[in-house]
Design a protein around this nucleic acid. Sequence first.
DNA 1: AATTATTTGTCCGTATGTATG
DNA 2: CCATACATACGGACAAATAAT
Lengths: 238, 238
Amino acid sequence: MQNRSEELVHELGRKIVNGEYLPGEILPKAEVLSEMHGVSRTVVREALKGLATRKLIRSNQRSGTSVLPRAMWQWWDIDVLTWIIEDENNSDFILHLTDVRLGLEPMAAALAAKRATDQDHVKIKACFEKLEQSVGDERAWAKADFEFHQSILHASYNDLMIGTIQSLHKALIISREKTFHAVKEYADPTFDSPTKEVLDRHRAIYEAVLARDEDLARQKMTDLILRVKRLLEEIYVS
Amino acid sequence: MQNRSEELVHELGRKIVNGEYLPGEILPKAEVLSEMHGVSRTVVREALKGLATRKLIRSNQRSGTSVLPRAMWQWWDIDVLTWIIEDENNSDFILHLTDVRLGLEPMAAALAAKRATDQDHVKIKACFEKLEQSVGDERAWAKADFEFHQSILHASYNDLMIGTIQSLHKALIISREKTFHAVKEYADPTFDSPTKEVLDRHRAIYEAVLARDEDLARQKMTDLILRVKRLLEEIYVS
DNA sequence: AATTATTTGTCCGTATGTATG
DNA sequence: CCATACATACGGACAAATAAT
């Protein structure tokens, strides 16, 4: 945390997400918040601005600042994602994320198959070979896996898609860190495991992209994420 | 615009998006911005907080406030979307949006087919009948169309998906307002037109969702958006 | 319909913190 | 280690909007 207003943003943001302040509720007025947290009113105002930008609250003169309904929140803000994932009440949020992932990543793969330049192909090939060499090594795999997906994502040449999927991956990493200790008995399916079988799934994607076969790339990426989804459902639904 | 800091956010945000301030560049210091725009430092600071939350800038003590690379921007923030769409240099952004849409909306339709309750079915049916009655009436259709898609979206029961697609639709509306006068000779394909043929496409989606046929719902929604995409490509690529 | 009370919005003067050269 | 230049933080005042009376 860099400064006091950022701190306060996190503190209040967390309380809103986990329901200590409910949608529709009025927050204590700025002066009171200032006393409650031992900071100046300036800091409180800047913190509220931060939450207002994320559409968690709205300020009105005289009537105070109220919590907005969930439907208005800026879900893709990395801090909002973090607060939601860290909140115990949203343990199934990772399943919702996976459904969005299932919509976007196969599309990104299809776009990459269509638009990748020769340079992109070289890069993707290099990343896949790194992946091949990482089978069995948990740490090396995690890094190579990230970069492999990144190389394909970049070749989609769609900034909006890239930004969204990057946020999505960040959220998965946060979720992973959180469940790492909690669910030791299961391997965390959020990220791919460094086995031969999973490598072959990546190979299928890799080959489809290089072959410029959009539909196949889409299909193989779907297969990969569906496998994750099924493992997640085993854990959470049961 | 509600207050001066919001105004300033828009003014600076626009300048960053359209390249008047480039990534890496250092903004004038708070005191100077304050003079330039005739507002106090407090207002400037709150505005900068707003831009920092959107990841357009980052403030550092001593080195000043710099513009962040596009890859870090919060693309789904409605204001960022607005600035990008309004900027002439991003006229093809709507195509990028459509690709994302093509990933998400068919997935949402599939989820709706899977998860819709009986109540949802009633709602969706009512919305479709409104749509049927609106054929030929541009204004009535636009409203009914919006609500039809909304009713299906809601039945996906995925807050993240709902929030994202809602932002997407808002962006399409903004884009429509912008191109409305600019491209008179073409009908704007961003939204569906109130013809019998398009109605039938909606009917196919509607029937698939009520029949709880996930794959068919996905497919029919894909068909609908692909039609839009092709029309858009005719306009922008040529 | 006018007045008042309450809360956010705005301003400014000053002081402190922090990274850079 | 010092000087500089910037952001960060504080407090007290007044303005503006709007809900309640």
